[in-house]
């Protein structure tokens, strides 16, 4: 089992690197805030970044393994449909997730 001192140092290392990556870019970008380029990026980026994050969570899905791929595709369809219909984030996430849990525990149990 790892020693307490080592674990504390490990936590501090991971936390410091993470915080640095989150905080330092603001210092670099602050002088550029008024530039039209940053204004453009700040409007165009969020939608794209969110799509990339969504795609990233699906990186291990292999179309060659139907028991993994189908529940994801179907649950994604339910999530998107419910969201386009009711526009309620909480409802769409709950419906899609519940549907996925049911699928992988009943139909696609492979």
């Amino acid at each position: 089992m790892p020693e307490t001192g080592y674990l504390i140092a490990a936590v501090a290392t991971a936390a410091a690197v993470t915080w640095g990556l989150r905080a330092l870019p603001f210092a670099v970008l602050a002088p550029l805030r008024a530039s039209p380029l940053i204004a453009y990026l700040s409007t165009a980026m969020p939608a794209g970044v969110l799509l990339i994050l969504a795609a990233y969570t699906l990186r291990d899905i292999d179309p060659g393994v139907p028991d993994r791929a189908w529940p994801t595709v179907l649950a994604l369809a339910v999530t998107v449909s419910v969201h386009l219909w009711r526009r309620n984030g909480m409802l769409s996430v709950s419906a899609g997730t519940a549907f996925h849990v049911v699928l992988v525990s009943t139909v696609f149990t492979g």
Binding site: A54, T57, P71, H83, V93, G96, T97, V101, V104
Partner: peptide, 14 residues
């Protein structure tokens, strides 16, 4: 299958 919540969340926000 609960991990799908993360995918659903990012999809909805996107």
């Amino acid at each position: 299958g609960l991990e799908f919540a993360v995918t659903a969340l990012f999809t909805v926000l996107a």
